[in-house]
Amino acid sequence: MKPFTVLHLIRTGCMQENREGRIKWILASAFAGTTVLFLASLFVGKYPLTLNQLLEKEEQALRVFLTLRLPRTSMALLGGFALGIAGNVYQTVFRNPLAAPDIIGVSSGASAGAAFGILFLSSGTAAVTFSAFLGALTAVLLTLSLAGTGREKGNASIVLSGIAVHALAQTMLMVLKLTADPEKELSSIEYWMMGSLGGITSYRMPVTVLVCLGALTGIFLLRRQVLLLSVEDEESRMLGVDVGKIRLMVLLLATLLVAAVISVTGLISFVGLLAPHTARLLAGKSRSSVMLLGGLMGSILLITADMLARGIAAGELPVSIFTSLLGAPFLLYLMAGKGKAYF
């Protein structure tokens, strides 16, 4: 099914009269769209694969399918879903429609971590993944502990601490780039920062999948608390929410999601920002079903972008180019229809 048809199905869902029915229809369409794109993505790439080859158990085709194509497509599915869900969490908790993973320093921490790994550990993927993951977590823990030391412990202080940590991580990254060998290391750092699913193999998947599934389960169990955090702190506390603890828990889970994904893929722009907005524009009010839809929109965006990244040119292109190229016009298209009611 072409993306346009998926879009058409989703738009048709928007016209349903009954709201519950409408959301179910949109969710079902998004599920169908994700599944179709997932299956299509398995057969796109430099090595031509057909269903017949797999059914006939051709050795080379099976090896490409199991060690490269399936892990890569699964990562696009899971990564997009995770980034979409994390974006929803950040935007809800910070009550800020522009909140993205970098608001508390996740991406810049991961970049600095990856650069450190490339320069001082090894250019091997495991070392870079590990140091990027550690960099992201360190940055976020630093942001949250800095915010906790001030007299004001609300969202504003977390965002301000996030800006400080982001600036610090960017400076570290700059210093690391200056000391990098321009021929090899610098290009590795730059390429990592443009994001790609090209390096995903079956060996790199298990830890990421486990961390993501754990964090996703936590966020879905806490989805009602996420909604309660969208209310002003005082009001939320008077509704029985231990704001400090729950916010910390939810932000750490969302950070684990983002860190687990971008540590293996490199930076992927726009998905975390765009997917939740698309879901809200399509389905209306913020509820758990919209959170789920945001995840699916993330998957759709990343799978499509990844197919283009490996299929459009002779060489592999950075996936962020396509997440932005696809995402921005789609957001504008939705805004043109519903923008006034939404913003």
């Binding site: 002003e232 005082e234 913020s286």
Partner: peptide, 16 residues
């Protein structure tokens, strides 16, 4: 506690 204006800033249904 009912504040002057509720700090609900997101689109959320009345029932929620």
């Amino acid at each position: 506690y009912i504040p002057q204006r509720s700090g609900i800033t997101l689109s959320v249904s009345v029932l929620d």
